[in-house]
């Protein structure tokens, strides 16, 4: 029976394939185009005269003597100090992921195991916090941070990103902890474990899939953030995304477009690779709260 239902007629298969191809083109092509263009000079990638120059590398050949060039990469990584920005991003991302997982697992475990009513209110408050636009929070940070003289440095930004990330991490881990049977840690408690020991030695080992998913989302938030990093860090400490924005407009870098193009490639490539490996976890996390309803 199932076979007949799921058998598709030829027309449907054809229409479907065309649609999927069309859709994939829309979602992937811009990235491929940027990757390709990053190896050309500006006159080719932004060619007024003829867009086929971007394919043939007409001006690139004239300017550099070859049809492809890695000039933009070399310059942005040396003169543009993109390496420093990469380093900052790595520091921020690793710290944010580890701290928010540590705080989040502790909190979510408690929320999933307590039977008192206040857990519900804590979760609701977290939901409200999750909805706050980041820029409104930043407008609240700046003044106190200037007064306390902690503006512009990486640790401040890391703590802020951890906090902004907590509501989502809590909700996600909470729904994962709910799926771990209570009997597991209850039996450990009867055997004489403390709550912390039960959490550490009994529950955590079976929670890895949930932790990986939550870590992935923390990573994307920290890696991709623009609002917080652009306003809370000084130019010297910029992470990759605000750095790319700085290449575009400021006098300092002379609006060097090709640096921005090559940096966009440098910044997205590692992200895409990580997502390729952890696709499953990402999708399970996105649907965790949604499908129940």
């Amino acid at each position: 029976m199932n076979q007949t239902i799921n058998k598709y007629s030829k027309q449907i298969i054809i229409v479907n394939s065309i649609f999927i191809l069309f859709w994939l083109t829309i979602s992937i092509f811009p990235f491929i185009w940027t990757l390709w263009g990053s190896f050309k000079v500006k006159a080719d990638f932004f060619s007024r005269a003829d867009w086929t120059y971007a394919l043939s590398g007409f001006n690139t050949l004239i300017e550099t003597g070859a049809t492809t060039t890695i000039k933009a990469y070399l310059e942005s990584w040396t003169e543009g100090e993109f390496g420093r920005a990469t380093m900052n991003t790595m520091i921020v991302t690793v710290s944010v992921v580890s701290i928010s997982l540590f705080l989040g697992t502790l909190g979510a475990y408690a929320l999933s195991r307590s039977t008192f009513k206040y857990t519900f209110y804590i979760l609701i408050i977290a939901l409200v916090f999750r909805a706050m636009p980041h820029i409104t929070l930043v407008s609240g940070y700046l003044f106190p941070f200037f007064q306390l003289n902690i503006w512009g440095i990486l640790p401040t930004t890391i703590i802020v990103l951890v906090a902004i990330n907590q509501p989502f991490t809590l909700w996600l881990l909470y729904s994962f902890f709910k799926t771990v049977p209570k009997e597991l840690d209850e039996s450990a408690l009867i055997d004489g474990c403390s709550y912390f020991q039960a959490f550490r030695y009994i529950i955590m080992p079976v929670m890895w899939p949930g932790v990986v998913t939550a870590g992935l989302f923390s990573m994307m938030l920290a890696y991709n953030d623009f609002t917080v990093t652009a306003l809370l860090l000084n130019q010297h400490n910029y992470t990759m995304v605000p750095k790319i924005n700085a290449y575009l407009g400021t006098v300092e870098y002379g609006g060097n477009y090709m640096w921005a193009v090559s940096s966009v490639v440098s910044a997205t490539a590692p992200l895409f690779m990580i997502i390729w490996f952890f696709q499953r976890q990402l999708i399970s996390g996105l649907t965790a709260g949604a499908v129940k309803g």
Binding site: L103, I125, I159, V160, Q166, F199
Partner: peptide, 13 residues
């Protein structure tokens, strides 16, 4: 258990 995460959220959100 909840203190660290609650503190972070109260202070920074």
């Amino acid at each position: 258990f909840i203190l660290p995460t609650a503190l972070a959220m109260i202070l920074f959100i």
